[in-house]
Write a protein that binds this DNA or RNA. Structure first.
Length: 156
DNA sequence: GCCAACGTTGGC
DNA sequence: GCCAACGTTGGC
């Protein structure tokens, strides 16, 4: 079982949108970066836990936890000509982009903000800080636990 | 809205 | 395969 961080812009798709999915899970689609794609396709596994990070908002922060309920499969929107995520170079036989399904698990009563993450020495080598633009990134067990501690501190 | 830091594209 | 031009992400 591994840990991940997925970024999303809350005005596009927030953790609340995920929590309100009627079918009980959300499709994490629209990833159009090769490094993120490779993590999704090759390493993200069913049962893995995911921090949901809200970007391009105030404040940017880890807001809660989701669980991977289906491993990578071809992202359907790459084949939809009217979609923003349509890719004419991708074929059903040889899809370029992948998505996973995630289920909402929990929300931090107080999010762990980027500035708090930057202030915590244990987290200084987090992929989130090293590669600011990567929308799917690995989280070590130590990092996972440190962020959970920060979220608990804030709850008190 | 600005802009730094990337990532992608395409001419050569 | 290089690299300039362009596009995007995302913090501030």
């Amino acid at each position: 079982m591994a840990f991940w961080l997925f970024k999303t812009e809350p005005n596009e798709y927030s953790i609340d949108n995920l929590a309100q999915e009627k079918r009980g899970y959300g499709v994490w689609d629209g990833i159009r970066n090769y490094q993120a794609r490779n993590f999704l396709r090759d390493d993200v596994a069913k049962g893995d836990l995911v921090f949901i990070y809200h970007s391009a908002c105030k404040p940017t922060a880890i807001v809660g936890i989701a669980k991977v309920v289906r491993a990578a499969y071809a992202d359907p929107v790459q084949f939809q000509a009217d979609s923003h995520y349509f890719d004419p170079k991708s074929t059903e036989q040889n899809p370029r982009w992948f998505c996973v399904d995630v289920a909402y698990q929990s929300r931090f009563s107080s999010p762990v903000t980027l500035s708090e993450i930057k202030r915590e020495p244990i987290l200084e080598s987090m992929a989130l800080l090293k590669q600011a633009r990567l929308s799917v990134s690995p989280v070590t067990e130590q990092e996972w636990e440190a962020i959970l501690r920060l979220s608990v501190q804030q709850n008190g």
